[in-house]
Amino acid sequence: MPEPVLVSVAAAVAGKAVVGLYHLIKAKFADDPDATAVLEAAEGAAQDSPEVRELAETLEAKQAADPEFGEQVRAEWERAAVGQHAETGGVTNQISGHVGGIVVQARDIEGGITF
């Protein structure tokens, strides 16, 4: 069973919602007729369809065989997710590494914050 993130990626690619990600995956699959057929079968399919599930499984196999491709897929997915959220007026915060203190994630604070 593919990771949930790969199912989300597959659904976005099937709907061509993230163009850069679609092109990255299409290019990777170009030398593999079976993978290309899976991608084409998933185009326009619903997120919970067997075609999207098969695309997610194919993505999982491709990233297992080529970890660099897996990193590229995840980086493109992250960029798309952050960009789409910010474009709709949402707040996008990213914290990485070790956090040893207090972290506040907020939007539109008026006045001070006291801890």
Rank of each mutant, 00 (worst) to 15 (best):
Q94F: 07
A106K: 01
S96H: 06
G101M: 09
I102Q: 14
I95V: 14
A27R: 10
P33V: 10
A27N: 06
V5G: 00
Y22K: 01
S49C: 09
V7M: 08
G101T: 12
V91N: 03
A11E: 15
D66F: 15
P50S: 04
F69S: 03
L24H: 09
A86Q: 11
D66Q: 07
G15M: 08
L59A: 10
A14T: 09
V19Q: 13
R74G: 12
F115I: 11
I95C: 03
A14M: 08
A81F: 06
G20C: 08
H98C: 00
R74T: 11
D66C: 15
N93V: 06
N93I: 05
K28D: 10
S49L: 12
S49Q: 01
A46G: 05
A10L: 08
E87Q: 15
V5A: 11
P4T: 11
A42K: 08
A45S: 11
E43L: 09
K28F: 04
A27L: 15
K62S: 10
R79V: 01
E78V: 01
I109H: 01
I113A: 04
F29G: 07
L59K: 12
Q47G: 01
K26G: 06
E110S: 03
A45M: 05
E40Q: 05
A56D: 11
I113F: 13
E60V: 00
E76W: 08
V91C: 02
T92H: 07
